[in-house]
């Protein structure tokens, strides 16, 4: 039954209302899962540093995936479950490319100073120059970070695979990390 076909009377209002809520949550979760699955990252070689290539269906999801990639790198691939409270993070920059770099540098700072590595990330809002996110992370005894900074070298964020702003393509980015 589709949501538009729902009808209810006063006696069944609570039950049907609950069903609607459950369905909404399932759909929301499914969309989130599909987005997450459609996002990917890989590391590429550089003589002295390390490159991170990210691909996602939207710029917002690309930012989230970049953070997941960085988290895995800093945890050296060890499995980790996020704990604790969600925390709000905000970054402003001059353009998309700078926003990606500043976002990663924000996470590097928290990892080193607070011994906290973000692993579960949700983007609340993202434009080309502003990011509002919430994250849950892993507390570590010693900062396991091996990343000094995200750099602007060879930095790119571009539409690929039939994009052009029509929503049909993916967004791909490359960033070099100083390690």
């Amino acid at each position: 039954m589709g949501r538009g076909e729902l009808s209810y009377n006063r006696g069944g209002e609570n039950v049907i209302g609950c069903l609607v809520q459950v369905e909404t949550r399932v759909l929301h979760g499914l969309r989130w899962y599909q987005k997450k699955m459609s996002a990917s990252h890989e590391f590429f070689d550089h003589t002295s540093e390390l490159g991170l290539r990210i691909r996602a269906s939207s710029f917002a999801e690309l930012l989230a995936e970049a953070a997941r990639g960085l988290g895995k790198l800093m945890l050296r691939g060890r499995p980790a479950s996020s704990t604790g409270q969600w925390r709000a993070l905000e970054v402003n920059a001059t353009d998309r490319e700078a926003l990606l770099v500043d976002w990663l540098n924000e996470l590097i700072f928290h990892a080193e100073v607070e011994r906290w590595i973000a692993v579960e990330i949700e983007i609340v809002a993202a434009t080309d120059t502003m990011l509002s996110a919430r994250a849950r992370g892993v507390a570590v005894d010693e900062a396991p970070a091996l990343v000094k900074a995200a750099t602007h070298h060879g930095l790119s964020v571009r539409q690929v695979g039939g994009g052009g702003g029509g929503g049909g393509g993916d967004v791909e980015a490359e960033v070099v990390l100083d390690v």
Partner: peptide
Amino acid sequence: YVREMDRVMPKYGIELPDRE
């Protein structure tokens, strides 16, 4: 300061082949 200089370069009319 990479961030800061990246932001102010247009003011000085500096164009670069690499943002870093």
